[in-house]
Amino acid sequence: MSAALFDALLVLTIVALAWRALADPDLFRAVIRFIAMGLMMAVAWIRLQAPDVALAEAAVGSALTGALVLSGLARMKGSRAARRDCSGAATFALGLLALVLLAVVGAAALSLPAPGGLTAEALGALPRSGVTNPVTAALLNYRGYDTLLEVAVLLLAVIAVWSLDVAWTGGADLERSPMLAMLLRLVLPILVVAAGYLLWIGAFAPGGAFQGGALLAGGGVLALLGGLGKRLARHERALRAGLAAGLLVFAGVAGGTLGVTGELVGYPEASAKWWILLIESAALVSIGLTLASLYLGGRPGGLDAATGSGNPESTAHD
């Protein structure tokens, strides 16, 4: 009985948060509700006994996306959304349509065949896949091609964001914020070690390159907030190399296996574990840098390295 009560409360909370996040004209409060909703979604994933997804949701869905949206909000002039006046009839019709859609989707979800379609085959092939975590096996072996394309999409996202604007060069002055400096000094190492830990155990427990990369990105965001952006121009080459590394390694291995075993992303069974680890390591770095670069907000190349101003006109480098 208690489980049903908990589920009901959780579902109501998520829906209420989502609704208020969309309906509130004060965008800042809407963002906070969005972050809280992301946290509640992570709880829901745990309730559904899916710690892999909960890890990803907590890391990316609430914290990183929340920080990203907050930074976007800070760059806007006003933070109140324009209130659109809907006529009562239009609102009612839309509400009815939404309810109908909900009923249709719900009926479809409830009528799905019981899980077990490919589960037996997937678990059966696990010993040959090189890892023992079925999620990682599915992501990097059975459906490795999908993941390869996803990594490419992440790189595209960075290119898109970078083509829109120059990097943000703000950040706290650590000389004058000793508390922030202490926080960075203590938390950044934990983040890096935890990222490596998630990468390593991804082979046999929830974790993997994506979750670890999200932690690394959190570290990157912290570093940017501590003023790293001002010194980024000197490391631009390394940054670009890191961003591309994941895709290059993955594509390289995938193409290589085409030559060796005749299948794209078809690792030789004996060494599958090591290829997966190699790809995940490169992907970890790339994903971390990608998400942090999104937070950076723009290309570092346009910086005036001397004064740190974001003026695109002044392209004089040291």
Binding site: S177, M179, L180, M182, L183, L186, V187, I190
Partner: peptide
């Protein structure tokens, strides 16, 4: 234990930063 230490550090610092 690591969770607790992390949350402690984070809370203490963020508390100070917000108040400041």
């Amino acid at each position: 234990g690591l969770i607790w230490v992390t949350v402690l550090i984070a809370s203490a610092s963020v508390c100070y930063l917000i108040a400041n």
